[in-house]
Design a protein around this nucleic acid. Structure first.
Lengths: 199, 199
DNA sequence: TTATTCTCAATACAGCTGACTTGGAAAAGC
DNA sequence: GCTTTTCCAAGTCAGCTGTATTGAGAATAA
């Protein structure tokens, strides 16, 4: 056998090269040759690790989502003391927003996938799969807030969860377009949470 | 001179063919030949009306925005009696959301443009140009609501306007992904407006 | 009629795309 | 040393892309 190579690591490196290109030129502007060049390998080598372009795209999408989840988890673990539901929601949303350039890259790539998913049934499944879990997570936090008396009991936890997700997503759009600054986005979200957590 | 042709009308017909393709396969999947075939004309004829693909894309985008504005204006004029600020906001937002299949098409195309604009400076200008006006329009309605005592005077009209725009945009995303139904989106927005217009 | 100008079809072209094939280098197990 | 398996570089291929060119038909104005 030849030298043993960590396939997963190679695939991750290729996926990250794909992100860089997708971020700069869009997903459709990322040819196999471009990605290979960005990753510093030959086209043949790239095709050795991904037997088709579609396989590469799906892998890169899943890897992206995994890293985002990891970042959120790490951020929540980094909270000092027992976090309140409001803190959990705030930190999660802040991590999702494109407030720094690294997060901006991730969001740009994710949106590129989203748009492709609108016309591609296979990708749509992958794109949608994380939404119910996120929504349930948010709803749980709202319910915890209600239980602690920090949220008015008349609020519908599921509705508030969807509202917060949609708001985050919309702000993401305008942040990426630079039609809205990071400070403004943060203050808008804080204001929204202020009215949700009234106690 | 040969038979006189209404250039603008031809260009509109071509733009609409482009939308149909962009809606089904994405903007990047719309080649000049595809658009010409969809419009029922030859490639040469299409090139006679648009000297470059870029020109066609920009024209189609502006035409799309113009029609959307017209629909909103018509809907507001259709309101019986003097509309309250809340009605104006509600109707405008409802017209923007992809609640029926026609509006869904428009939103799909608009998002395709949005994503391309993220990587294309020329398009970004066109994509952003309508946002400040919309935001100012929404803010004016909120201010009118405050003046009429229907909105709490402590609310920041500009912030509420941005919040509503972002929320609409986020809901649009999840409607298009079918991660959220039309009824739910409407009820979420009504709930949001209920809390804004408290009197 | 004749000339002019508009409309548009056909074709060509260079460049890029994703997929595939071939062949060889390298390293582990025997 | 020899085999076997893995890894990967180079090249080929058909197909599609946007653009440019050429020329023909058609209708108006002289």
């Amino acid at each position: 056998m030849p030298k043993r190579v960590d396939h997963e690591e190679r695939r991750r490196a290729i996926a990250e090269a794909l992100w860089r290109i997708a971020c700069a030129r869009g997903l459709d502007g990322a040819s196999l040759r471009d990605v290979a060049a960005e990753a510093g390998i030959s086209l043949g080598q790239l095709q050795h690790y991904f037997s088709s372009k579609d396989e590469m795209l799906v892998f890169a999408l899943k890897h992206l989502g995994g890293l985002a989840e990891d970042r959120i988890r790490a951020r929540l673990l980094g909270l000092t003391g027992p976090p309140s539901p409001r803190d959990v929601l705030r930190e999660t949303v802040m991590e999702m927003l494109p407030l720094d350039s690294a997060s901006r890259t991730g969001n740009l790539v994710q949106i590129a996938y989203f748009v492709r998913a609108l016309h591609d049934e296979r990708l749509r499944g992958h794109a949608k799969e994380g939404i119910p879990a996120l929504r349930a997570f948010f709803a749980d936090q709202v319910r915890a807030g209600i239980a602690r008396g920090e949220v008015d009991a008349s609020r519908d936890a599921d509705a508030e969860a969807m509202l917060l997700i949609a708001l985050t997503d919309g702000l993401t759009t305008y942040l990426l377009l630079e039609a809205c600054g990071p400070d403004e986005a943060v203050s808008l979200l804080d204001g929204h949470l202020d009215r949700l957590f009234t106690a």
